[in-house]
């Protein structure tokens, strides 16, 4: 445990020095939040009310899906994973540290959005802050699971970027965070339902803000959790098979 915590502390310090991590986890999400927050709150007061939730979904998806895979692919390509392994650090520990550090960064960004959106854009404070952060934790885990899965599946950086975009853009456009999902054509509305962002928004709205939702909010949270468990299991399984393949 001590070794794991030492690694996590070092990883967090490295992340602060890494411009790409700062860009994906902090700079772009916060910039987007400040710009879009102003736009949303002025053109659609209904969306402005739940701005913290929609901007948090954007930030978490951006950081986990766009920011997390690249360092994992880079570690595999450069031989860092092998160097760590021969020095006694198992590959799963590397993945776990990446996941936990991403969780911490994205939780911090989400906390900034949560606290500043009522102050800057007069958005509503959730009826149930506890449930807000519970939904956030589940959605963070699911999104980080997707990021890990992309990181272990992609053989190189360009493939990882392509996979990330395939998840990120539909999550942004079809989940209802940019405009109501009910405005989408039926086929796109259904397509949006394969992404956790869609269910996360329903959970935030129904459980934390206690507003009416298109889907059952508790069931939506369960679906996000289920998706999270599934992608984590797939990521670990895929990683194991990649490592076995490298040994054979």
């Amino acid at each position: 445990m001590n070794a794991f915590l030492t690694y996590l502390w070092i990883q967090l310090k490295m992340d602060v020095r890494d411009r790409a991590i700062l860009l994906h986890f902090y700079l772009v999400p916060l910039l987007f939040f400040f710009v879009m927050g102003a736009v949303f709150s002025s053109i659609n007061p209904l969306m402005g009310a739940t701005l913290a939730a929609s901007m948090t979904i954007f930030s978490v998806t951006m950081g986990a899906v766009m920011g997390l895979p690249a360092p994992i692919v880079r570690m595999r390509e450069s031989g860092t994973l092998r160097a760590f392994e021969v020095n006694g650090i198992p590959g799963l520990a590397v993945l776990s540290v990446q996941a936990v550090s991403a969780f911490i960064h994205l939780f911090l960004v989400s906390a900034v959005i949560y606290t500043t959106s009522p102050l800057l854009f007069h958005s509503e404070i959730p009826q149930s802050p506890g449930l807000y952060f519970a939904v956030l934790a589940v959605f963070l885990a699911a999104s980080i699971g997707i990021g890990l899965l992309i990181g272990v599946v992609a053989r190189n950086q360009s493939f990882a970027t392509m996979l990330s975009m395939v998840i990120f853009l539909p999550s942004l456009l079809l989940s209802g965070i940019m405009f109501p999902a009910s405005m989408l054509p039926t086929s796109f509305m259904w397509l949006g339902r394969i992404f956790p962002a869609t269910y996360a928004l329903q959970s935030f709205l129904g459980l934390a803000y206690q507003t009416t939702t298109n889907m059952d909010a508790t069931l939506s949270l369960g679906i996000v959790a289920g998706m999270g468990l599934l992608v984590f299991a797939l990521a670990i399984r895929w990683f194991g098979s990649v490592r076995r393949g490298e040994r054979s």
């Binding site: 070092i10 310090k13 490295m14 020095r17 160097a83 021969v86 006694g88 650090i89």
Partner: peptide, 16 residues
């Protein structure tokens, strides 16, 4: 083999 670019030498030794 390599280490992460932003890892310092003292951090690498402390980690191992």
């Amino acid at each position: 083999s390599a280490l992460p670019d932003s890892m310092r030498v003292d951090e690498a030794i402390a980690l191992i």
